[in-house]
């Protein structure tokens, strides 16, 4: 059963070392979540997400729309279980994979081979499963002899190939993405895209945050529009895009 259910979920950050803001700053504010005060007016509180109600079920292809700081990334992290809501509740059923940072967990001093294992274990595999994965990724990433060199010797593109290869080798129930990923040169990019599509097709729930309407149209059918950490519209993709861009 793959499901995400958010009920009155909020994400609030207390900023302990920030000065309280001035009215002038308030008036000039155009981006970001709502900034409020703590109970005793002694600290600054950022309401990154406020009172979110959302129900995603098997087959959902959801787009997150909103300008910078509207709460899209925070939303992705709430959906991935990184943030447990500071108020309300979040129920997440299913194995989540967030393709937010493909190289997370990789260690520049260790070899490519060791990093494949490390990254795969991070994604929830056992060490034995991870080891079995190495040949397939070695072939996909086309790194050849570099696989036995420390990762610090890799170019950025090579490191991306490896990170992408491992991250897409598993088939999670829920996929979260911040903008569409593209890796490598033209030939590799098309190969990578095919692999990514294969992974996305198998996922029960897909959530993409993007500023590109074309990307969203390609993968999503439903959208939510976030502003100042609130959902101000939830509906079919085209309707939301029209409203968001019409006023935006």
């Amino acid at each position: 059963m793959v499901e995400i259910l958010l009920e009155h979920a909020s994400v609030e950050f207390s900023i302990y070392n920030a000065r309280s803001r001035s009215i002038r700053n308030d008036l000039l504010k155009r981006v970001g979540g709502h900034i409020g005060h703590g109970v005793n007016n002694d600290r600054v509180v950022i309401h990154a997400l406020r009172d979110i109600n959302l129900h995603l079920t098997e087959g959902t292809r959801l787009a997150l729309v909103g300008h910078n700081g509207a709460g899209k990334s925070t939303m992705l992290r709430l959906l991935s279980g990184v943030y447990e809501p500071s108020a309300g509740s979040a129920l997440i059923e299913g194995h989540v994979s967030s393709l937010l940072d493909l190289s997370m967990g990789m260690d520049p001093e260790q070899t490519g081979r060791e990093n494949i294992i490390l990254r795969a274990v991070f994604l929830g595999m056992s060490v034995a499963q991870a080891k079995a994965l190495v040949p397939e990724i070695a072939e996909f990433s086309e790194l050849g002899p570099y696989l036995d060199l420390p990762m610090r010797t890799y170019s950025a593109g090579m490191a991306m190939r490896l990170g992408f290869g491992v991250s897409t080798a598993i088939h999670p129930d829920i996929i979260l993405m911040d903008e569409m990923i593209s890796v490598g040169d033209a030939r590799f990019a098309s190969k990578a895209k095919a692999r990514l599509h294969n992974m996305m097709d198998k996922a029960g729930i897909l959530v993409i945050a993007s500023h590109s309407s074309d990307t969203l149209r390609q993968y999503c059918d439903r959208a939510i529009w976030l502003e100042e950490g609130r959902i101000i519209m939830d509906g079919p993709l085209e309707e939301v895009l029209a409203r968001a861009h019409g006023t935006g």
Binding site: R77, S80, G81, V82, V96, S98, L100, D101, M104, G105, F122
Partner: peptide, 9 residues
């Protein structure tokens, strides 16, 4: 923090 902010391990 690099890990904790990215995944729910």
């Amino acid at each position: 923090q690099g890990y904790i902010k990215q995944t729910s391990i």
